[in-house]
Design a protein around this nucleic acid. Structure first.
Lengths: 131, 131
DNA sequence: ACATCTGTTATATATATAATATAACAGATG
DNA sequence: CATCTGTTATATTATATATATAACAGATGT
């Protein structure tokens, strides 16, 4: 999978990495059971340190999106093992969205406009092709 | 306005302050033209440093939500002066929402469920009473 | 067997951010 | 004229980010 980083962004590299892998899974570009590159090869490919990749992988493992086996290496979890819609997650989701929505409200974005943006993003992510 | 901070949160205090003031404006608890406490009194009230409040105020001023006059002090901008729906802001909004939506998609949240959550938050924020 | 690749762990360093502390300045207030 | 205001400067502490180098133990391929 193609990884694009902005090294000048205020968003940490390991966060950008996590975001892109999660979006890869969401879009289907990364399928359940699919292998991810080793920490060393991915770090080398995109020109960053091994530990930065390792941090992203470790957090993705903690959140349940990937598994790391001695034998199989780093793989995307199976569909049945994918993180679920827990109460805890829904609370986190609302907490993440709240300030974003508040600002858009201040700027006069209507509920319909906001819903349209969300819908467009949802479909954009879902309909991405491979590569 | 009541300010509630979580000093143990990984979200910086100045960010929590900004978020709460913006949500105050979005809800109408803070009206255009209304005064905000001085950096020293607010810092003293909530038990944090003056510079932390000052950082939040300075950033809110830069983004256009408040004004700081020698005479009037710190006030919420008038409705006509409120930050607008610029292309730049809409791009930032999509960038903020994208990874959040991607994760919810991985966890099996439907577009309808997501829209419902957004709508609930939008209305929650809008319908908050004073105090 | 042996070299190689794997995730993992440990240390160290440099840089940036966050938060606090203390001090001072200049404009405005009463 | 004392007091409060935002603002600026400087310093310190703690934490987060990213890198660098090294080592360990399990697994792989020849």
């Amino acid at each position: 999978m193609m990884i694009e980083l902005d090294l000048q962004s205020e968003i940490p590299i390991y966060t950008q990495l996590m975001d892109q892998i999660i979006e890869g899974i969401a879009s289907g570009r990364l399928e359940p059971g699919e292998s991810l590159p080793s920490v060393r090869s991915l770090a080398s490919d995109i020109g960053i340190n091994l530990h930065t990749v390792n941090k992203a992988y470790t957090l993705l493992k903690q959140e349940g999106f990937i598994q790391i086996h001695r034998k199989k290496g780093v793989i995307v979890v199976q569909k049945e093992e994918m993180p679920q819609l827990t109460e805890q997650y829904l609370a986190k989701l609302s907490q993440q969205l709240r300030p974003v929505i508040a600002e858009s409200l201040c700027r006069g974005l209507s509920q319909e406009q906001l819903t349209e943006i969300i819908t467009r993003l949802y479909n954009d992510i879902q309909s991405q092709n491979k590569e």
